[in-house]
Amino acid sequence: MQRSAASLMRSLHGLFPVYKPPGFTWKNVRDTLQMKLLKELNSIKRCSSSQPLLFLPEGSEGSSGVELAKVVTCVASLPKEIPSLPSLVNHELVKGPAYNWLKIGVGHKLDRLSSGVLVFGIRDGAKLLSSMYENHYTRDYTVCGTFGKATADFTDGGKIIEKTTFNHITRDKLERIIAMIQGSNQKAMLTHSHIDLKSQEAYDLAVQGKLRPKVKTPPLILGMRCLEFSLPDFTLEIQCMHETQQHLRKTIHEIGLELRSTAVCTKVRRTRDGPFTLDSALTHVHWDVDSLCRAIKECKASVEEMYKENIDLFLQNAKAEELLTSDVRSQ
């Protein structure tokens, strides 16, 4: 049984991930998604709730003779032999499309050259994006690079400003530089966490893998490892937070400089954004109402967990503020 457009609209509330291909901005993806959903909702046949009416002439005797007046009559009450006209009250050309706009919010954005998981919130789900932002989730990227040249914008399609040799680079040297970058960022993460590292709270968070800053910080790389190495190309897996895709490209450039060479970034692909992974992301062929409803339902558990973490964070901040206030009063 086909569901009505109003019933489908009631189901479109929540968060869901989509796959953004390279070469498109996040605005292009959002507008295309919105256009497809509105087109599908408006294509569903509307149920006519009004009773079709027919204006029939009726004669009556007056002072000047027989007068004709138009009387409104229900079609259902007319004899079958009298032809009736269809009601055009709810026709699309008369009333217009039922849905003209959908509220769709976007999470942590991807630039035009990047691809991967992009989280959207539809209707009331757009409000949940602020909770996702306040949780300061980590994100995973697969970043590819090529040694031997440097460009003005750190991409392989940018203006070349330098070419260098790279035959002296080995995987061991690359992994040493990766460990150095990871160590310096780990130290910065502990500084921004504002937690006593000798406390039980710090130990519990470290065991759960949740020891991370709870405030906005500069871009931090929490983990990095080499997946593939075949000169001049290499592939890294990077776990980070508060990053931009341009910062990741600049990191590839800096790795090349540390290895006495140069490097450019050839691909940036986000594989995870908080609890949302690439496996659950909808490709463009699945940008329809039914697929979105299923994706929102599948992500419901992740959203509930996000709410729980947000409440825990609020209680931790309230407790810290209360302790700070009591210390000030005691002084």
Rank of each mutant, 00 (worst) to 15 (best):
G125R: 10
K80L: 10
S131M: 04
V66Y: 14
N135F: 05
V94M: 08
D140T: 09
G96W: 12
F154P: 00
G125V: 08
K159Y: 12
N135R: 12
T138A: 03
I161Q: 08
V71S: 13
Y141G: 08
K95S: 09
T155W: 09
E81W: 08
F147V: 00
G145T: 02
S87W: 00
L118Q: 12
V106Q: 11
F166E: 03
S131G: 05
F154T: 01
A76K: 15
Y133N: 04
G116F: 11
G158V: 05
A150E: 14
V75K: 15
V75L: 01
T164Q: 09
T138L: 04
V89M: 11
V119R: 04
I161H: 11
S131Y: 02
D156L: 02
G148T: 01
D140Q: 11
A126H: 04
L129H: 02
S115R: 12
Y133T: 13
P83A: 09
G105F: 05
N167Y: 08
G116C: 13
L102H: 14
T142P: 00
L93Q: 12
T142R: 03
L93K: 14
L129A: 05
R139V: 10
I104S: 13
Y137V: 01
S77C: 06
P83S: 14
N90F: 14
L85T: 15
H91T: 03
G105A: 06
L113R: 14
F120K: 09
A126L: 05
Y141T: 03
H136M: 07
R112T: 15
L93Y: 07
H91E: 04
I160M: 07
I82R: 08
L129N: 11
H136T: 02
C144G: 07
T142H: 04
P86R: 12
H108W: 06
K159E: 13
